[in-house]
Amino acid sequence: MKIKKILNNNAVVVSDNNEEKIAIGAGIAFQKRKNDIVNPGKIEKLFVMKENEKFQQLLQQIPEEHFSISEEIISYAEDCLGLKLNEHIHIGLTDHLSFAIERATEGIHLKNKLFDEIKILYKKEFDIGMWAIRHIEKKTLVKMPVDEAAYIALHIHTSKPQSDDMKQTLRQTAIIGEMIQTIKESITVKLEEDDLSYQRLMTHLRFTLSRLSNENQPIMDEEMLTMLKNKFSISYKIAQKVAKLLSKNYGIHLPEQELGYITIHIERIRNR
Rank of each mutant, 00 (worst) to 15 (best):
Q168T: 08
I108G: 04
S98H: 05
L191H: 03
S235P: 01
Q57D: 10
C80Q: 11
K123M: 09
K229I: 15
K237E: 11
Y198L: 07
M144V: 07
I180H: 04
I133Y: 06
F99D: 05
M224Q: 08
L141S: 12
G41D: 03
N35P: 00
S233K: 06
F126R: 03
F232T: 00
S75F: 03
T208R: 00
H90Y: 12
R171Y: 15
S233R: 05
F99S: 06
D16V: 11
E78S: 08
E72S: 04
K139P: 00
R206H: 11
M227D: 10
P255Q: 11
E102L: 10
G129I: 02
L259W: 12
T182C: 12
R272A: 15
A132E: 04
I24Q: 04
M49A: 12
E65W: 08
K4A: 12
Q57I: 09
F99E: 06
A149D: 01
N249H: 10
S68G: 05
D165E: 05
M224C: 09
I180K: 07
K241P: 00
S75L: 10
I43G: 00
K231L: 15
E72G: 03
H109E: 10
S163A: 15
F30I: 04
V146M: 13
R268T: 07
A150G: 01
M144H: 03
K184M: 14
L170F: 14
K244W: 09
E102V: 04
N249I: 00
S68V: 12
L201A: 11
L259F: 15
G41C: 02
S68T: 10
E148I: 06
L7R: 01
K241Q: 13
L81G: 08
S75M: 07
I24F: 14
I69P: 00
K84R: 14
K42E: 05
W131K: 04
N86P: 02
M144L: 13
R33A: 08
E65F: 12
L154N: 01
K143C: 03
I62M: 08
I264G: 00
H96Y: 14
I262E: 05
L114H: 09
L201C: 13
N249G: 01
M166V: 03
V13K: 06
I152S: 01
L93F: 15
T169D: 05
L228P: 02
D95Q: 12
E267M: 01
K54C: 02
S163L: 09
E193A: 07
K244E: 10
N271C: 13
Q60P: 00
L83R: 04
H90N: 08
T263Q: 05
L246S: 06
Y198S: 08
S15Q: 10
H135V: 02
C80M: 14
K113Q: 13
I183F: 13
H135D: 02
D36T: 09
E137L: 04
L58A: 04
L83V: 06
L205F: 09
A243Y: 05
P40M: 14
L93Q: 06
I187Q: 06
P255W: 01
W131I: 03
H96Q: 07
E87P: 01
E71R: 01
A239E: 03
T208D: 06
A11T: 04
P255C: 06
P145E: 11
L254F: 15
T182S: 11
